[in-house]
């Protein structure tokens, strides 16, 4: 198991946002989290790289182990952890810098000084994100000159540049048009060869297309977690059935 989650409970103040969640995620698999808005799937995702640490007045019990190491152990250095666990956000959020600097940023803040290596890594990851051919002539241009879909792929390249072993994606295609979405999904299938991906999505077809396993969340509980095929064809719980057939949500 790449990731093991044991008995997670999470609170925003007195609000019980995640209730007793346990799951295991294998290496080089894509796991999709689905569920209606406010079900806790994004909150859960943000636990893996401790992004929820930024929100005051939150509380967590239980354990998350990545490669057998407890993410929330007291001696863990959060910045080292976050280098290992990349994240792509809902809206494309490139930095107000050039395209090149956006991708190089993660390397630079992690102390890489070798210019040749940085240039090489930027090209590699931009190729990996299927963006190289579109931007190779304008690496010095502002990242905001790119379209929304290109910006999102740039953000994926940026996350990949520091070679994480896990990639968290928080509705990465929700702000994109169908063509850009297809490109991002294609990218996810490619990236699976290199790392473990957890993707939160509202779009059930997307979950069905890209993921190996799917977890359905409802009201802070993980209702069902199984192979994607099983979830979308023979779900065991009626809530899951109702959600994927579009009866609510």
């Amino acid at each position: 198991m790449k990731i093991e989650v044991k008995d997670i409970d999470f609170y925003y103040g007195s609000f019980h946002a995640l209730k007793n969640i346990s799951m295991g995620i294998e290496q080089n698999k894509v796991v999709a989290f689905i569920g209606p808005s406010g079900c806790g799937k994004s909150t859960f995702l943000r636990l893996f790289n401790r992004m929820n640490d930024l929100i005051p007045d939150t509380r967590l019990t239980g354990q998350i182990l990545i490669d057998g190491k407890d993410v929330y152990a007291p001696k863990v250095e959060v910045d080292v952890l976050r280098k290992e666990i990349g994240m792509v956000f809902q809206r494309p959020n490139p930095f107000p810098m050039s395209i090149f600097e956006n991708v190089a940023y993660g390397l630079r803040v992690n102390g890489v000084k070798d210019k040749v290596f940085i240039a090489q890594r930027v090209e590699e990851t931009l190729r990996g994100a299927a963006l190289w051919d579109e931007v190779k002539d304008k690496l010095k241009a502002s990242a905001y000159a790119l379209s929304g879909g290109q910006q999102q792929r740039l953000c994926i390249a940026r996350a990949m540049a520091v070679s994480p072993s896990v990639l968290l994606m928080d509705e990465p295609a929700s702000a994109l048009d169908p063509i850009s979405t297809a490109k991002v999904e294609e990218l996810i299938r490619e990236l699976r060869k290199e790392l473990t991906i957890i993707i939160v999505t509202h779009n059930m077809q997307q979950a069905a297309r890209v993921s190996d396993k799917t977890a359905f969340f409802y009201m802070g509980e993980m209702v069902e977690y199984d192979d994607t095929k099983v979830i979308f064809t023979h779900p065991r719980k009626t809530e899951t059935q109702n959600y994927i057939t579009g009866r609510f949500g």
Binding site: M51, E84, V109, R158
Partner: peptide
């Protein structure tokens, strides 16, 4: 300075001060 930019920087393993110096102040 948008919260999303700070989060993006932190998620790449930047420390808080790196985020302030390299993202918040320039932007």
């Amino acid at each position: 300075c948008p919260r999303s930019l700070r989060e993006a920087s932190l998620a790449l393993g930047a420390t808080r001060w790196q985020t302030i110096c390299k993202v918040v102040i320039p932007s």
